[in-house]
């Protein structure tokens, strides 16, 4: 079949239209929820038989593409806090460099499977669960017509007590830059290990920890994702030669279009409903990835493919 395309770096043959459609689907989710979509795409690509190292590395540029596509729309809607995005990204850069080294070591001792599955299970499970319960509470409360408790004006000492305060006019905040940088480092490390942009952690963390206004969260998170994934992509290509340009291009053709449609569609939904749907997706992926740890494997041995495993 002429629709199958041989990938020069991954050295496997894949169905072209299927990858474009996948890219579009994940791109749509990315634009809709303001996340990179890597947490969905990495498991799918690995399932399709693409070596994990290549999947993770090539995905970074796909995520950069769909994030760029939707960030431009959010910029037009003036929903990006570039200063906050820059602070987060500076932490993200440090985190991803450290994360790449940590992951290298984990692969060497052959525990990459375990660490990846466990991180998916723990982080996606916890975040999905928290988001789901929070958004359901909000939805139920607004259905009952009760008043929303105002906690916007609380000033947590974590944000306001620490030194190095900076003004973030876009977010109407004047907080220490230590928590956002720490968040950036943490997300950067996780993204290198899990092969994700980190949006699914950033978005809730920006809302609940940094108390940023909800309307700038999505655009800002996407902006920081562009910076870290661009760096990750170049680093992976330069150090590991694992970026498959054909794979990345196939994914991003669908991805950029899907992201545009997603960003448009997002205005039609209520924020808490969107969060509830995202929470369900996140939970499902986390449980699916974690399930493998508990089921008795049909094949007790695993080949560690690729140069590094």
């Amino acid at each position: 079949m002429a629709l199958d395309i041989y990938l020069p770096i991954a050295e496997v043959s894949v169905n072209g239209p299927l990858l474009v459609a996948l890219g579009a689907g994940v791109g749509f989710i990315s634009g809709l929820f303001g996340i990179g979509g890597g947490f969905l795409m990495t498991p799918i690509l690995v399932f399709l038989g693409i070596p994990p190292a290549v999947a993770v590395a090539s995905l970074a540029s796909h995520v950069a593409a769909s994030s760029t596509s939707s960030v431009i729309s959010y910029t037009r809607a003036r929903a990006v806090d570039f200063r906050m995005g820059g602070v987060l990204a500076s932490g993200g850069v440090v985190g991803s460099i450290v994360g790449v080294e940590v992951f290298r070591w984990i692969r060497l001792i052959g525990q990459a499977d375990l660490v990846v599955s466990l991180s998916y299970l723990i982080f996606l499970g916890v975040i999905g669960g928290l988001m789901l319960s929070e958004s359901l509470t909000t939805i139920i409360r607004s259905r009952r017509g009760g008043s929303q408790p105002q906690n916007r004006d609380r000033r947590p000492p974590l944000l306001y007590g620490l030194p190095f305060k900076v003004k973030f006019p876009k977010s109407r905040m004047y907080i220490s830059i230590i928590p956002p940088i720490a968040l950036g480092v943490f997300v950067g490390m996780l993204s290198a290990i899990m092969g994700v942009g980190g949006g699914f952690i950033l978005v809730p963390a920006m809302i609940y920890l940094l108390r940023m206004p909800a309307n700038v969260v999505v655009g800002t998170s996407l902006f920081q994702i562009i910076i870290t994934t661009t760096l990750t992509s170049v680093l992976q290509a330069g150090r590991n030669q694992t970026v498959d340009i054909v794979l990345a291009t196939l994914l991003l053709i669908g991805g950029v279009i899907g992201a545009q449609l997603g960003a448009k569609a997002s205005s039609r939904f209520r924020a808490e409903e969107l969060r509830a749907i995202l929470a369900l997706i996140v939970l499902a992926v986390g449980l699916r990835m974690g399930l493998g740890l508990f089921l008795t494997p049909t094949e007790p041995f695993v080949l560690m493919t690729g140069s590094g495993g």
Partner: peptide
């Protein structure tokens, strides 16, 4: 073959090119 050689002999340039394509595609779609 060209892509494979490019990726292995000029990895940094390859990385920059591939990420530029990605960013340009994102911008173009938008």
């Amino acid at each position: 073959r060209s892509l494979y050689l490019f990726a292995h002999f000029h990895p940094w340039t390859y990385g920059l090119v591939s990420v530029s394509i990605a960013l340009a595609a994102g911008w173009a779609a938008s």
